[in-house]
Design a protein around this nucleic acid. Structure first.
Length: 878
RNA sequence: GGAUGUGUAGCUCAGUUGGUUAGAGCGUUCGCUUCACACGCGAGAGGCCGGGGGUUCGAGUCCCUCCACAUCCA
């Protein structure tokens, strides 16, 4: 051959292409060239429809990246890359969630400090430790102000985030790194506070003093969405209450709450207890008189069918207390211990001594033991306690069952109390396309099952402060009914450290002065604003300016996330957008499944079955790991499967090798399409047109897996059959026209295939693209269309010639000879139509199958060979 | 108990609106140094499509029922 490819292209093709180093090489180029940059100017100048915007989940910066992240984030990246190639200006931010308990714990342990909302900011503060704190005991931690704590968080999480960033870059996620945010940074805090203040001013947020779920370990109120029902060992105690006509037995798992009993309650239809309704009984040990009442929430078939209502043992107690207007007799304090002073309703009763000696200040656990002992002695315990597994509510991060404590808290309305709002939020769900569609049921079920508004205040010190002060009245008490709210322009504020406008710091806590709300917002109250934070809502109409970009990206096109946080993150985001913008926050929700280990258990750190992505990337390449991720469809849990990663690696290597080969026959000049004349070449192009159609339809249907499968299976046929069939002709053995047709076809197919693979395999496709393109990225190339591929071919031709080649191979394989064995005589059997197609490509078939002599055709149902002679290749004697 | 999803080859999964003999990859078996790739290539074996009933000329696909598993809510 005398031809050479153009020097720039051919010289770039390595002798032995390899995956090694592609991540570093192309990662650096993409970063330098801004390949994935969002075009802000174009967005501002154009229509909303030209933008595809993504509400990327901000990973927890203090956590570690696991395969679940790789899985779901790669799904989103494939879609982002497809949309970018399809011509959209892709808004693809990346944020970090460094607001919340995990970060709080990490900062505490790393620096040996503890937040204290009563302290003031120390500008010269130096932390006692940096990762070398020896003790994690609270007593050894240095108390510091909230502002100082946030500064330490900034310092530490920035380090964590650098590690995350390098990993995300290595795996080839195409974020625009300049649109970053952190949920604890000034912009996020200000946005969170601004949205909350608007909720307050519109009446969507309110304060209420009410019994609520309380975690005694973390000493904070907990929202319904943070609950987790777990099995908890307990025991049924059969206890006698004293009625006028003898004892009434109840069964309870919490006898220590007898002092806070306010009624006995049975089902209205329960004939056993109907005679008692309206009467009163006396509690054992304490002798307090309580009514026997009827309520349908009492379960007839559970225990004795009659229950004691205490204030408060569980949420049913709260329901009864509210609906039956019962008095409040709380004994459990915020620490989870019983109060030390004797409750007033027990003063002078038979139980006063028991309280003072056995119960005051005790934990619920030891109080229970004391009460049970006393019940035994008084004869009110019937039989021995029967062990049972009961369901108890836990805070998802907590280890002790939640108590119910009456406190003043802030709430945001979420449809848990108002039917109209509930219906409106379910209707919002109907405006969002869930992928897969059945995930909408999770949303609707959750919203329908809400039983209260969203509790957003938390009694922690680290997080976004509730931006509210209260006037202090003449008695020195805060006036919670008249909160003082800051101007939006002054945000973010920390009411624990800054005075409100018009006050000075020395008026804090004094009559006529003010106090700051000590609480912080639920982290979901901030992360539910991720679209507003990323898109710059505050820069449009808040305290930061007047940039109108927000309207060009919001409502966003898609929220990607996992299904376990539909009830929290997804729902909360819908609530905030509903109130603030009267719209959905996004029009699509792409819900990824979980990664399970090979034993079908969810991978989690506590189970110790986590595989770290770093090692896998190093060992198998980013494209290989991405292939595994892209093989899992939306909404489906997938097993971690190293085998599938290896398949991806083989595919990526095959792309390199096949591309090198396809480009090795010499350069092709001029109009490629015009040079394609051979029916076999036109046939492969016809197949390619179908693949473009399928792959495009796959992505449009949010099914990256279908797109990948179509491309992948075509690619293997292309390699195994088409390339084998035409290589001899492409070398030029049968004239220039046939060679040109094959070479042009190889170029066309390769160019299209690279683009079809690009969303899943960004590194190898970019590498090969660079061999044939002097400039530009495959990731900025237009997504292929059916129309750009020459038409007129019949896919059946390649299928027929391929089938003929297969039976020749089969004959050789069964004879256990190499594929190079020559076939001087053969008869090919098959249906007439198929044989007709085979004749069209006979020359290529002869070359690929080494059919050197006579080739007869005979009609038959099955494709097969007959009367075939084989001449094995003589092994080299030397 | 309610909701949702899933049961197809040893494993992981495809199977579009019902339509020939149910597919792929991995694994396995048997072969092949073939001028891109041994991280390769070729060929073979392997399935009462969870059970039962029904609709239909025809069911992996539609309907009923049962069973098992998973997740969420009680």
């Amino acid at each position: 051959m005398t031809e050479h490819a153009s020097p720039t292209a051919a010289s770039a093709i390595p002798d032995r292409p390899s995956l090694d180093g592609l991540e570093e090489k192309w990662g650096a180029v993409w970063q330098e060239q801004g390949t994935y940059a969002f075009d802000r100017e174009a967005a501002l100048a154009g229509d909303r429809s030209g933008v595809f915007s993504i509400d990327t989940p901000p990973p927890t910066a203090s956590g570690s990246l696991h395969m679940g992240h790789v899985f779901s984030y790669t799904h989103t990246d494939c879609m982002a890359r497809y949309k970018r190639m399809a011509g959209f200006n892709v808004f693809y931010p990346i944020g970090w969630d460094d607001n919340g308990l995990p970060t709080e714990k990490r900062v505490q342990n790393y620096y040996g400090v503890r937040g204290d909302a009563t302290l003031h900011h120390d500008p010269d503060f130096v932390p006692p430790f940096r990762g070398d704190a020896k003790s994690t005991k609270a007593a050894d931690e240095l108390p510091i102000s909230r502002q100082n704590f946030i500064e330490l968080c900034d310092e530490l999480t920035v380090k964590d985030e650098e590690a995350f960033e390098s990993l995300f870059r290595r795996i080839g996620h195409s974020y625009d790194w300049s649109i970053g945010y952190r949920t604890i940074d000034d912009h996020s805090r200000a946005t969170s506070q601004q949205a909350f203040l608007r909720n307050v001013r519109r009446g969507e947020a309110y304060q209420s003093e009410a019994p609520g779920l309380w975690d005694v370990t973390f000493q904070t109120a907990v929202a319904q969405a943070e609950l987790e029902a777990r099995d908890y060992p307990g025991a049924y105690h059969r206890v006698a209450f004293h009625g006028a006509d003898g004892p009434v037995h109840i069964e309870t798992t919490r006898p220590e709450l007898i002092p806070s009993c306010v009624a006995l309650i049975a089902h209205p239809d329960d004939e056993r207890y109907q005679p008692l309704f309206g009467s009163t009984v006396r509690t054992p040990l304490f002798g307090v008189e309580v009514p026997v009442l009827a309520h349908p929430a009492a379960e007839m078939d559970k225990g004795a069918g009659i229950a004691m209502c205490c204030t408060f043992g569980d949420l049913t107690d709260v329901l009864w207390w509210r609906e039956l207007r019962l008095p409040t007799r709380s004994v459990i304090t915020r620490s989870g211990r019983l109060q030390t002073e004797v409750p007033e309703w027990l003063e002078g009763s038979s139980g006063e001594a028991l309280w003072a000696e056995g119960l005051a200040g005790k934990t619920a656990f030891s109080a229970r033991e004391a009460v049970v002992t006393a019940l035994r002695e008084s004869g009110d315990l019937d039989g021995e306690p029967k062990p049972t597994q009961r369901k108890a509510n836990f805070y998802e991060r907590g280890e002790k069952p939640l108590e119910i404590v009456t406190t003043r808290q802030w709430y945001i309305r979420n449809g848990g109390r108002e039917a109209d709002l509930n219906a409106a939020l379910i209707a919002r769900g109907e405006e969002i396309d869930f992928h897969p569609g059945f995930m909408r049921n999770r949303y609707a079920n959750w919203v329908q099952g809400l039983n209260g508004d969203w509790l957003v205040s938390r009694q922690r010190f680290f997080g976004v402060p509730i931006p509210v002060w209260y006037p202090v009245d003449a008695d020195g008490e805060p006036d919670h009914d008249h909160p003082i709210l800051p101007d939006e322009a002054d945000l973010p504020v920390d009411p624990a450290a800054n005075p409100p406008a018009g006050y000075t710091e020395d008026q804090r806590g004094v009559s006529g002065g003010f106090v700051g709300d000590p609480d912080i917002l639920d982290t979901w109250a901030t992360s539910s604003l991720s679209p507003q934070i990323a898109a710059g809502w505050r820069r449009r109409d808040g305290g930061e300016g007047s940039e109108p970009l927000f309207d060009k990206v919001f409502p966003m096109d898609v929220r990607p996330q996992a299904h376990d946080i539909i009830r929290t993150w997804l729902f909360a985001t819908v609530v905030r957008a509903h109130f603030e913008h009267g719209s959905v926050p996004w029009t699509n929700a792409a819900i990824s499944g979980w990664i399970l280990d090979p034993d079908r258990k969810k991978m989690s750190k506590s189970r110790g079955n986590v595989v770290t992505p770093e090692d896998l990337l190093k060992e198998h390449s980013a494209d290989a790991v991405r292939y595994w991720a892209a093989s899992g469809r939306l909404g489906t849990d997938a097993a971690y499967d190293v085998g599938q990663i290896k398949v991806g690696r083989r595919l990526a290597i095959k792309v390199l090798n096949a591309s090198k080969f396809a480009l090795s026959f010499g350069s092709v000049e001029g109009d490629l399409a015009a040079q394609v004349t051979d029916p076999l070449d036109l046939s492969v192009l016809a197949g390619l047109r179908e693949v473009v159609e399928k792959a495009t339809a796959g992505f449009e249907a949010w099914d990256h897996t279908r797109a990948l499968e179509a491309t992948e299976s075509f690619f293997w046929t292309f390699c195994d059959d088409y390339l084998e069939l035409v290589k001899d002709r492409a070398y030029g053995s049968r004239g220039e026209e046939g060679a040109a047709s094959a070479r042009a076809t190889l170029r066309i197919v390769l160019d299209v295939l690279l683009r079809l693979f690009a969303p899943v395999l960004p590194f190898v496709t970019e590498e090969v693209w660079s061999w044939t393109h002097d400039a530009g990225s495959v990731h900025r190339a237009p997504w292929p269309t059916v129309d750009e591929v020459p038409a007129g071919g019949d896919p059946a031709v390649l299928a027929a010639v391929g089938a003929a080649l297969a039976v020749v191979r089969k004959a050789k394989s069964e004879a256990k000879v190499g594929m190079r064995a020559e076939v001087p005589v053969a008869t090919l059997v098959g249906p007439a139509g198929l044989l007709e197609h085979v004749r069209t490509g006979e020359a290529d078939l002869r070359a690929a199958g080494r059919l050197t002599g006579s080739l007869e055709y005979a009609e038959g149902e099955e494709v097969a060979t007959r009367d075939l002679e084989l001449v094995p290749v003589a092994k080299p004697t030397a």
